[in-house]
Design a protein around this nucleic acid. Structure first.
Lengths: 153, 153
DNA sequence: TAAAACTCTATCATGTCAATAGAGTATTAC
DNA sequence: GTAATACTCTATTGACATGATAGAGTTTTA
């Protein structure tokens, strides 16, 4: 799995919408400001997520976007698969985006067996983490002191 | 981590060179035939791996390539990092290809914490698997009957 | 000495990516 | 009512990566 800027922006927008989840709607401008994302580009992304049924929108003044479902029902896996496609490192081990590769014997391919392990490891993580979980982490990180690790970089 | 065709070809070539590891040298043509890889393209890739110190070559008739070091000393992680760059899904959690991202507070970013987990999971696998391990898997798969899973696809 | 194999650089077509742009439509505060 | 705000939709741009092909070598040895 490799996240493009587009995918990263999508997750960051979902985090904002998750943290402000409720009956009301959040304007694009605010998400753009809070997350430092080009507004016009964000428009495209949110629109895309709306077509996918992830978001709902309200037009006009005081319009904006909100999650179509509760944050705990939206997994990162679903979002990333929609924006980026396969989670697997090579498409011959992808469950939903499978494509035959050019190797001589796919069923007995050693590389494939390693890639399948990598795929499973990643899927296990992003399938378990929901937008709700993301929000909890965000809140936790907000209140906790920074760990030593964060200063290394 | 996402493998390009180039990276996949590299691994498949290394598998052939690992299985035939010894003092002698394997001609490009043979690797190209066995693995169904365009010869001229493979040339570029092997040349690149030679510059990186992974392979050695011998020119002229009966020339070809061989591993510069024993198969157990070459990890998939090293190869993939050289061909593809970062193993991490986003470069802000990459150890060797770190780049600052545009999010408001990197140290307290919830998305980043998830991505770090994904990175660690993948790195753990490809850092442990060497070309030697790849060869063992290949031999094992050769002699074992196919599992039920292989027929699903 | 000719054939096989590596070497190096250049080029190509195609596609993707991130971003920008323009011309709308809907809604509502006033 | 109407202007301002915000979403909607399509198109386009420039930059870059990718996968592959091409040409003109050089080296080695059977």
């Amino acid at each position: 799995m490799k996240l493009s800027t587009r995918g990263e922006y999508a997750l960051r927008a979902l985090l904002v919408l998750g943290l402000n989840y409720g009956p009301h709607v959040i304007p694009i401008q605010r998400i753009s400001n809070e997350q430092n994302i080009p507004k016009r580009f964000l428009e495209q992304i949110l629109n895309d997520l709306k077509s996918a049924g992830v978001l709902e929108s309200k037009r006009g003044i005081n319009g904006g976007y909100r999650l179509a479902r509760p944050p705990q029902d939206v997994t990162l896996a679903a979002i990333i698969r929609h924006i980026e496609g396969a989670l697997a490192p090579v498409s011959c081990v992808s469950e939903r985006f499978y494509e035959k590769c050019s190797c001589p014997d796919e069923a007995r391919c050693a590389i494939r067996s390693v890639m399948r392990e990598a795929r499973d490891a990643v899927v296990k993580i992003v399938e378990r983490v929901t937008v709700a979980e993301l929000c909890e982490r965000a809140k936790r990180l907000q209140h906790e002191p920074l760990t030593a690790l964060d200063f290394i970089i």
